[in-house]
Design a binder for these strands. Structure first.
Lengths: 190, 190
DNA sequence: ATAATTATGTGACGTTTATCACAGGTCTGA
DNA sequence: TCAGACCTGTGATAAACGTCACATAATTAT
């Protein structure tokens, strides 16, 4: 839980009392590699704080897997639309490595947040980080070519390239696996 | 202000008292067509509730304009990263029509939110909607081709196609103006 | 250890897209 | 009403990309 508390305090002022109040909201849960955190069609009632390992969100369309996001240590993974609106999730979240998470239960979180303003503020800041990340990657496709998107990741998010295989990265960058292989080759040579 | 109050109450329960408390946070402001709401390099200290008209966010790179978002009535426009972290904005927001907005002042909003939990909750829900929208459009590029992205807008967001010109839409869809023109022709015929 | 699975690289080929150039249409302000 | 600005369409051509096929690592499971 130490990592989580540090994470929270990097976002917002958080008293020891708020941390105590938050405890009943939290559950530690481990996932094996390839185990699902969220299944398509389910409603997402959790925020998953990633304590160790990483996971990804993906759509499965006509039997083809398309990765839409990767979530590493000290990030929150969730389906923000499903979590907020109670709608069924259109995508899955799966552990890519053995994964340690701390789960925020939605109902308990909302009830506790009504009692403690610091917890409400924490929720706002978690969502804000999520929105910032989404905006960042959404913009990439409008501004840059596939090669430029790869270069962006190399400079701004090298951890993704270090931990995610080329095949997994391809659909996230919006190109075919073979194309990404060739882009990478061009860059190593040129 | 009527539209704003309806908008707020569609998001969260909001007492008359909270609405009174919120008033000093709000300023009504009108923009002429092509007037900037936010300029690249500035820090964004506002949430712009769109009461009437629409605006867009755009990057200007090597003299070329790339549109990254459109914001219509009953939406909040802002730079979520700049607003939340106090960093300089990397893009502009400009009125595409004569525009009526209601501006939330950041400092006043934060101070008022500490006093009234309903206002803090409102802030969280505004950001949540923003995150949901970003995620939606981010996913489009990973799942669909340019033609499929256009079809998605036709079914899910027809208001964009009705009000935004083809030239303006092209960079938002991540294709050249000429390509979008040809895609549209293919679709009308086929 | 070995078989099976998964990941990567590469060639061939067809499709899609970007870019440049230019023509005609529409809107708008002086 | 007329000039300038913007918008849309279209042809030609080159570049980028997707798909299929197959070979070769590298990893994983038994």
């Amino acid at each position: 839980m130490d990592n989580l508390l540090k994470y929270i305090r990097s976002l917002t002022s958080f008293s020891d009392g708020s941390w105590e109040l938050l405890q009943p909201v939290l559950t530690k849960k481990e996932f094996k590699k390839n185990e699902l955190l969220l299944r398509q069609g389910q409603v997402c009632n959790s925020l998953f704080y990633i304590d160790n390992g990483y996971c990804k969100s993906y759509y499965e369309i006509d039997g083809v897997v398309k990765n839409t996001g990767f979530f590493f240590e000290n990030e929150i993974a969730t389906n923000i639309n499903s979590f907020g609106n109670g709608q069924k999730s259109e995508f899955n979240i799966v552990a890519c490595e053995p994964l340690t998470t701390i789960i925020f239960n939605k109902d308990k979180l909302f009830k506790t947040a009504q009692q403690a303003n610091e917890i409400e503020t924490l929720g706002r800041n978690c969502i804000r980080l999520f929105a910032t990340k989404q905006e960042e990657f959404s913009t990439l496709f409008k501004l840059y070519s596939a090669q430029e998107r790869l270069e962006y990741l190399e400079t701004k998010h090298p951890e993704i390239l270090q931990r995610v295989s080329l095949s997994q990265l391809a659909s996230f960058l919006g190109v075919a696996r073979e194309t990404l292989s060739r882009i990478r080759k061009r860059r190593v040579l040129g």
